[in-house]
């Protein structure tokens, strides 16, 4: 009798669960069939009336039915939940091609990027970075660099003087003189000096009354011109590509003797001749030379014991060559459309 009831309950429950159309209906079914006052509990309670043989059989059956219903409910529940989730996900669908909320970053200035690249290269080669005043004494800007007051290479008209003795530095070379003085006649001195310099020029596409320079100086026992050549080769390859070659041409600067001009093989045409190198295959990059003994002497170094090399370059020129920039004024106009193009430089 009880057995039949249980089997009937099982049928009823399975049909009920099967037709449950939501979690709520399922929960009602669960309470109805498995609740503390539910029919299966009732059956269990009334088992005391059964014989000792029948009791375990019906008990076992009741347990099986209970488990089966519970399992079916879980199964149905998982099924319903999955369907719900699917609906939810469908609802949450977005246009993933819409633009994201970017964090707009600023662009570093191209000159800063170039200077940093040069700095990092030379730090790796053991050079530290020295900076100095932009308003200089005539002595450091000229005299200590072997440019006495009446030197023909000096022209008052080319410089922004503040008084007869004070001027806007015309190159970063005075930092050399300051640095040598600080070392009090004892090498090695190994520095590069980046910074702003000023010349009395009218601003146009190729001239700027303010521009940047990077100067290098290495003074030690037995520093040779061949060492300069070696260091500059490393520099040229680093800045302009591994297959660059360099050549040194004799030149003149009052503060070096011998003085040279460094050309690199053209990075555009590889040396065959093009409009970047004006058909020569070579591009002039920087001036350099062996530090003039007068410069060493004036800054407290004994030229019979020490030799050194120095070089100076213009970051604007490097940038203009490297990227084909046609007007030096772009560097100081700071047009964002210009700067943005180089934010990976």
């Amino acid at each position: 009798m009880l057995k039949e009831k249980l089997l009937e309950l099982r049928e009823q429950a399975l049909s009920n669960i099967g037709s449950a159309d939501g979690l709520k209906a399922l929960q009602e079914a669960q309470i109805r069939f498995l609740g503390k006052k539910g029919p299966i509990t009732e059956v269990m309670k009334s088992m005391g009336k059964l014989s000792a043989e029948e009791r375990p059989i019906v008990g076992q059956l009741a347990n099986e039915v209970r488990k089966l219903i519970a399992a079916k409910i879980e199964e149905k529940k998982a099924d319903l939940e999955a369907k719900l989730l699917e609906l939810k996900l469908e609802h949450e669908k977005i246009d993933v091609t819409l633009p994201g909320r970017k964090i707009a970053t600023g662009s570093p200035h191209l000159l800063a990027s170039i200077i940093q690249e040069v700095e990092d290269l030379f730090i790796g080669l053991g050079f530290s970075i020295e900076e100095g005043p932009e308003v200089e004494q005539d002595y450091y800007n000229f005299e200590a660099l072997n440019l006495p007051k009446d030197h023909p290479a000096r022209d008052m008209q080319d410089s922004f003087y503040i008084t007869d003795e004070i001027l806007m530095r015309t190159h970063t070379s005075p930092v050399q003189a300051h640095t040598l003085e600080k070392h009090k006649g004892v090498g090695p001195v190994k520095v590069i000096c980046p910074g702003k310099v000023y010349r009395r020029d009218n601003d146009d596409a190729t001239h700027s009354h303010q521009f940047m320079q990077i100067e290098g100086l290495y003074v030690d026992h037995n520093v040779r011109l061949s060492d300069l050549k070696g260091i500059l080769t490393v520099f040229a390859k680093h800045m302009f590509g591994a297959d660059r070659e360099i050549r040194l041409r004799p030149s003149f600067f009052p503060f070096t003797e011998p003085s040279v001009e460094m050309d690199i093989s053209c990075f555009r045409c590889g040396g065959h001749g093009c409009n970047v190198c004006k058909g020569t295959g070579w591009i002039e990059i920087l001036g350099a030379g062996m530090v003039h003994p007068n410069v060493l002497r004036m800054s407290g170094f004994d030229p019979s014991e020490y030799t050194g090399f120095a070089f100076g370059m213009g970051p604007e020129r490097i940038a203009m060559l490297k990227y084909g920039i046609e007007d030096i004024r772009h560097f100081y106009t700071d047009d964002i459309r210009f700067l943005k193009q180089f934010d990976r430089a």
Partner: peptide, 14 residues
């Protein structure tokens, strides 16, 4: 003239 690297005191920089 050859290209060489300086033989002098090696120095660290930062």
């Amino acid at each position: 003239i050859p290209a060489t690297l300086p033989e002098g005191t090696s120095s660290h920089a930062s």
